[in-house]
């Protein structure tokens, strides 16, 4: 009985030693590695968020610039002299200020209305207007930033 007790005590001691050995001496380094990994993950996430913010900012900035230029083109168009509009785009440009405006008959309404298109870098703005004596009069509030016709080729 005593021999068994001594044997079990030795066995427990050995087992305890075995359990202790692998963690001995490396715990601090392991902690550093864990902290480093967590830190890197955190920084990666931050970096990703930062990139998203920057991209978002650039997109908005481009949109505002394109909108302003397209709107400016439409404003400039009303000061220009235009001939009778047809079903094909009739365009005028002011290259110094990168303004480009086109007009055509509004297909969805009766013949007295025209569509004015202001364009800048593939961004298009459309406005409904009337033409009298070669001068355009814009219809208040009737603007769209997409093709007002159900067929996209109508706006190309």
């Amino acid at each position: 009985m005593l021999r068994l007790k001594i044997f079990s005590m030795i066995a427990m001691r050995q087992a305890f030693k075995l359990l202790q050995l692998p963690s001995k001496g490396f715990s601090s380094l392991q902690m550093i590695l864990i902290i480093m990994s967590l830190g890197i993950i955190m920084m990666k996430t931050f970096s990703h968020i930062s990139t998203l913010w920057q991209k978002d900012y650039i997109q908005y900035k481009r949109y505002y610039q394109q909108f302003n230029q397209a709107q400016s083109s439409i404003e400039w168009a009303i000061t220009q002299q235009w001939t009778i509009p047809t079903e094909h785009w009739q365009c005028q440009e002011l290259l110094t200020y990168q303004l480009s405006a086109c007009i055509k008959v509004a297909g969805l309404l009766n013949g007295e209305y025209v569509i004015v298109k202001g364009e800048f870098q593939r961004f298009k703005l459309f406005h409904l207007a009337t033409l009298y004596n070669g001068k355009l009069t814009l219809q208040q509030g009737h603007w769209l930033d997409y093709c007002p016709n159900n067929k996209s080729q109508y706006c190309e």
Binding site: I35, M43, F46, I49, Q54, D56, K61
Partner: peptide, 27 residues
Amino acid sequence: VMLGLVEFQTVLTSTIWQAKKRHTAQT
């Protein structure tokens, strides 16, 4: 490692903050 991380986070936070301010200014 911590010094590096703190420096990196400071730069990132500043970048995000600047981008946010510029975004608001554009709007």
